[in-house]
């Protein structure tokens, strides 16, 4: 139980500003994770000779990447200036770091997906040359994309935590776990939808790992006492609970429905929807914590009191 918070404020007004980000940002959290999960799936498929799984992974990575780029640019107050992000590389800004991770990912996931058109090209002539050149290029690019994927999936957790938004800041040890798990589960979900059951085994196992991380991380985030409260209440709470239910359903479907293409695809869709809901829930929880001065004042007062007690004790 969280004790009733006793605190003072200026007419109940927020102390910190809630983020002005629109829905594009939680949507990007999802698509960025999907791109990362898909790229890992594609790379694994490439190494273990599962062409259908590889194709699904590469194509969904590229699609999610394109959606990500759209969301990120659309959210800007001045979209025509998006390239100002590329003026600098700033280690103190997770958004700057992320921009470069995303750029690198685009430069690798793009060619990897492009290589999938090779079988459609004629065998002879200049295009025939391309037909033979593309697969090795795609393989190299696919490895590059997979190498960047874990960073792509987790930097967004740092981006949210490196703010004064109380429930994001406090959740910094756990948010990356949620986001890594959500990325794996959504990538696996896309794999389950787009791949025949014969090649979907790894996607199934990845779904299990991802769902487990996502559920565990979200539980940790929600259990942080007063600062976990915004994740348990209101819209954020409903979104996260619905996400959890769909993750569980997707997990069950992935395991039990392994002989059925339809059941696999349904569980994949469930995992994708769960990832969307979880991202929006985490986002909304932070926004709610910024709007109520309680979440800024009470933990800071407690910190001051602890410091005072330590100073008095020594």
């Amino acid at each position: 139980m969280v004790p009733a918070a006793d605190f003072r404020s200026y007419y109940g007004r927020p102390v910190v500003k809630p983020p002005v980000w629109k829905r594009d940002i939680p949507a990007y959290l999802f698509t960025g994770g999907l791109a990362a999960g898909s790229a890992l799936l594609a790379a694994g498929a490439q190494f273990t000779g599962r062409p259908a799984l590889r194709r699904t992974g590469r194509v969904s990575a590229l699609g999610a990447l394109a959606a990500s780029t759209y969301f990120l640019i659309n959210d800007l107050g001045r979209p025509e200036r998006f390239h100002h992000m590329l003026r600098v590389a700033k280690p103190t800004s997770p958004m700057s770091t992320g921009t470069w991770i995303l750029a690198g990912f685009g430069a690798t996931a793009g060619p990897a997906a492009l290589a999938e058109v090779a079988p459609l090209l004629p065998e002879r002539g200049p295009l025939g040359l391309l037909r033979r050149a593309l697969p090795p290029l795609g393989a190299t690019a696919g490895i590059g994309a997979a190498a960047l994927a874990p960073a792509l999936a987790t930097y967004t957790a740092v981006l949210l935590s490196d703010t004064a938004t109380p429930s994001w800041r406090a959740a910094y040890p756990h948010l990356p776990v949620v986001f890594a798990g959500s990325a794996l589960a959504s990538g696996a979900g896309a794999g389950l939808i787009g791949t025949p059951v014969a090649q979907a085994g790894p996607a199934r196992r990845m779904a299990v790992c991802g769902a487990a991380l996502e559920l565990y991380g979200a539980h940790q985030v929600e259990s942080q006492g007063l600062l976990g409260e915004p994740y348990r209440q209101g819209r954020a709470g409903r979104l996260l609970r619905a996400g959890r239910a769909l993750t569980a359903a997707g997990l069950a479907g992935a395991v039990l429905g392994r002989h059925s293409r339809v059941a696999s695809a349904l569980s994949g869709a469930s995992l994708l929807a769960a990832s969307v809901l979880t991202r929006f829930g985490i986002f909304e929880g932070g926004v709610a914590s910024a709007k109520d001065p309680k979440y800024t004042v009470v933990p800071q007062r407690e910190r001051l009191a602890r410091r005072q007690a330590a100073a008095d004790g020594s």
Binding site: P150, P176, A180, M206, C209, L213
Partner: peptide, 19 residues
Amino acid sequence: RAGLAALAMAAAAVVSFAG
């Protein structure tokens, strides 16, 4: 913490295909 989660993610991918 993000680095640890990223490592866990990579490990999960390896395990999924090694399994």
